[in-house]
Amino acid sequence: KAKLLVLLYAFVATDADTICIGYHANNSTDTVDTILEKNVAVTHSVNLLEDSHNGKLCKLKGIAPLQLGKCNITGWLLGNPECDSLLPARSWSYIVETPNSENGACYPGDLIDYEELREQLSSVSSLERFEIFPKESSWPNHTFNGVTVSCSHRGKSSFYRNLLWLTKKGDSYPKLTNSYVNNKGKEVLVLWGVHHPSSSDEQQSLYSNGNAYVSVASSNYNRRFTPEIAARPKVRDQHGRMNYYWTLLEPGDTIIFEATGNLIAPWYAFALSRGFESGIITSNASMHECNTKCQTPQGAINSNLPFQNIHPVTIGECPKYVRSTKLRMVTGLRNIPSIQYRGLFGAIAGFIEGGWTGMIDGWYGYHHQNEQGSGYAADQKSTQNAINGITNKVNSVIEKMNTQFTAVGKEFNNLEKRMENLNKKVDDGFLDIWTYNAELLVLLENERTLDFHDLNVKNLYEKVKSQLKNNAKEIGNGCFEFYHKCDNECMESVRNGTYDYPKYSEESKLNR
């Protein structure tokens, strides 16, 4: 008799109507990190870190770059004969040098303040090359056809396309004075040089004057150069050297050249137009028929994500570079809930034993079982409120962090190594801060989002509990077992918050 009662009780308990509160689960393989956990499985997430590029040089917003090819900045601007293909260059979106560009200054020497000139050019998007001192009329008392084997072109001695090597005419090199007034309405880049012979005999042979000088002056520039005559090792078949100089001439300003020898005179100059998204990159990537809004030396990035880990040097509207390998923000729920887990921000989770793959029309909802059958029903209101809140948060985070910009490298010469090392340390410090901030932001927001979901499920549970009161009992896994019969209409009233407690209280009292 006792065995019969136990079996009867078990049958009745199993047959009781139930309603459970749960949440969506799926077959997603997404994982995120939080402050407290690593690799948390979630139903949905968004990636904030771009880690792919196309490996190509592309047009930037429809404008092609200027590819210097086998030449570098120095060779292009001075007019190395091997860089003749660059003479027609007028406009570009950015400038590309190759790491091993070999054609710079063909006659050995240095372009002074080269690093600063590169910085200036990094904001130039177009130029006009014009004859600042016409070759045939500007130097009537001097020979202007100086050439050298060091600047050979097609097997013949030649010289820079933008400079003139002035030497004596006959047996004399009379003092020369020439000036140019900038009437271009924009900055003009003027380049010139000073020749330093290897011996007094060479000085006399070329310029006749043993104590020659070169003077260059404008409103913002004033220097006097004296040739340094000295024996030097042979470089590119030359014992002599040429140093090259430049200045930016403001609109309306005048530049005056005065010399008694050794002047490498300007022939062509450049009127410059600035462009905020221009820059110089060093890259071996090849040019393709493609378009982008962000270019790196590795390749083009076409992404609206706020961060990238491809390269710190970028041109155009680019994500911020960070050292992170993963920045994924959760938008959905835990896919593998932890039992009795309390989140960092106070939300209680884990009283549900598992997510439901059968509930596909919402994030949170119900599963019921009664004599009429069983089924899932999503709670659309709480789901939609959660979707709206999380979507707004993700968009806000992306908008705040998605300050796209150009980031170019800084140039230092060989004598500025300590400054370069200090600059690298400062840049590394800023990069570490950006990386830390980005990672911390994602970790915190992921923790908040998961706790937010847990709290929403808990609130749904409490909503049902407050309606049923003692007409049902909690069975410990997020479910309630009714003390009365609850048909589909009754189940719907529980879900929509209109459950009639008094209607079922007498039946429940008897069954309790």
Rank of each mutant, 00 (worst) to 15 (best):
Q203W: 04
I132H: 05
R161L: 00
A10E: 02
H196K: 01
S125H: 08
N183M: 10
V235E: 08
L77V: 14
W92H: 04
S198V: 08
P108T: 04
L249H: 00
E258V: 07
V147N: 11
G109F: 09
W267S: 08
I73H: 04
P134I: 02
N178Y: 01
T18L: 15
P227F: 03
G62V: 02
Q204I: 15
E102Y: 10
A89D: 12
K186V: 12
L68K: 02
G170M: 12
D237K: 10
R224Y: 12
G62M: 07
R236L: 15
T43F: 12
F133G: 00
T74N: 10
L191M: 14
Y207Q: 02
F11R: 11
I255V: 15
D253K: 12
P140A: 09
N72Y: 02
A269M: 09
C71F: 09
E136Y: 08
M242C: 05
G170H: 04
L263A: 03
V190R: 05
Q204W: 01
F276I: 10
V32H: 00
S45P: 04
H142N: 12
E250I: 09
D201V: 12
Y180V: 02
N262K: 04
H53W: 04
E82A: 15
Y114V: 06
L127Y: 11
P88T: 10
L48V: 05
G279Q: 07
R224H: 10
A16G: 14
R118C: 06
L163F: 12
C151A: 03
N220R: 12
S137T: 06
F133I: 05
S52W: 05
I95H: 06
G185V: 01
P233Y: 05
G261H: 06
L8Q: 06
D237L: 05
E258N: 07
E128P: 06
E97N: 03
S205D: 12
L127S: 11
E131R: 05
H142P: 00
K135S: 12
K169W: 07
S126W: 01
S179F: 13
S273R: 10
K135C: 08
N145S: 08
I256D: 05
A16Q: 10
R223K: 13
I21Y: 14
P108M: 04
F133Y: 14
T43I: 03
S138K: 08
K3G: 11
N209S: 13
N100G: 14
T31N: 07
S101V: 14
K184I: 12
E277K: 09
Y114A: 13
P266R: 11
I63N: 14
G69A: 07
V214L: 12
S198A: 07
C83D: 06
K184S: 04
E50A: 15
L86Y: 06
N182E: 08
E277R: 12
V216A: 04
E187S: 12
G146W: 06
W246Q: 01
A89V: 10
G275S: 15
S45I: 06
S200V: 08
V6K: 12
N145I: 05
E128A: 06
L78Y: 09
K175I: 13
K56Q: 08
W139I: 02
I229F: 12
